[in-house]
Computed example of a mutant assay.
Amino acid sequence: MKLSWWPSAQQRQFQNHERKTFGRLRTSCSQTMLMNLKTLDWDPATLKTLGIPGEILPKIVSNAEVIGNVATGWPIKGVQISGCLGDQHAAMLGQVCRKGEAKSTYGTGAFILLNTGDKVIKSNHGLLSTIAYKLGSKAQTNYALEGSVAIAGAAVQWLRDNLGIISSASDIEAMASQVENTGGVYFVPAFNGLFAPWWRDNARGIVIGITRYTTKAHIARAVLESMCFQVKDVVDSMQKDYGNDKNDGVLRVDGGATINNLLMQTQADLSAMPVIRPSDIETTARGAAFAAGLAAGIWKEDFIFDTAE
């Protein structure tokens, strides 16, 4: 079962260790900027420039293959270690994002990835090129465009811990729902700069548009909207780089903050695209399990991608 949010009618109208012993997964290696995304190995020129001996680096393996066994001294000695992905890449696989599909994970920050298929797309709009996943040593590599938002759920924690406007993070939806809009209040949570697509480390947070009419409910709603605006900025950049019409796609979502229905509806309205939330919002563990089961022969790739809907 999946829950979906669609842009409101108004929005739709507007939009008419040793190298031989240890392995490292390709999705993680791609984040180090030491790996060549096309050869899928450490980049000799980069290593030479930085003075890093290639022999000290671990062998790079795919996300779904047996890379060893649990060592002696652990309760599950001998159990195969297979299938491992970085957090956001695991969530992407757990969401079963195919080529052209994007996911956004809402936690302390927000992390958006778009599967670009077998092509590395160089971003001209402030994003990173990375690997989405590679499900086996001989499997096709799926690449991605990635954009990270520094402050998402952390802004809600700030309302609770620093301002005392809410007593718990779960209170924000009810408070923000007391008003129909922000009353002209806008919040930019650049507490320690802005990440993708702006990359402004000197930016600082602001709240503007406050009048005597402003209540804490307006500020709470502005905080929720700030999360959605930031995700929208990243998604818009992805569409420019990938050349995809936003009305043709959907945004798959996961993470703790997605239990907030107002947040999800606001995201759909601002992005003018459907937002789909799975019944299990912790998709990172699901993606790791998919990769491990595939490597262990419990299921085949068709099983994973038949579970999308």
Rank of each mutant, 00 (worst) to 15 (best):
G183A: 03
M227V: 11
L194C: 01
G243I: 01
L270Q: 10
G209F: 09
H218C: 05
T214A: 09
I206W: 00
C228N: 13
P278S: 14
N202D: 15
R204H: 12
D171T: 01
R277Q: 14
V185I: 05
D236Y: 06
I166C: 02
D236N: 14
G209C: 09
A169Q: 09
I276A: 08
S279N: 14
W198P: 00
Y213S: 14
D233S: 13
G243K: 09
Y242T: 01
P197I: 06
R200H: 12
I276L: 15
F195R: 15
K232D: 09
G184R: 06
N181Q: 03
Q267G: 10
S177Q: 05
T258V: 15
S168M: 03
S271L: 15
D236S: 13
F195D: 04
T214P: 05
R252T: 04
D269W: 11
I206N: 09
V223W: 02
G243R: 10
M175T: 02
I166S: 02
A222N: 07
R200A: 08
R221H: 04
K240P: 00
S237G: 05
A176N: 00
H218S: 03
A176S: 12
Y213A: 15
A174N: 12
A176R: 00
I206C: 11
L224I: 14
V185H: 01
S237N: 06
S177T: 03
I210A: 09
D241S: 06
L270V: 15
V207I: 15
E173P: 00
P197K: 05
A222F: 07
H218Q: 11
T266G: 02
N202M: 07
K232R: 15
R204V: 02
W199R: 05
K246M: 06
I208S: 12
G243Y: 11
V234I: 15
W199N: 03
V231L: 05
S167E: 13
E173V: 00
E225T: 03
D171H: 04
F191L: 10
D269K: 10
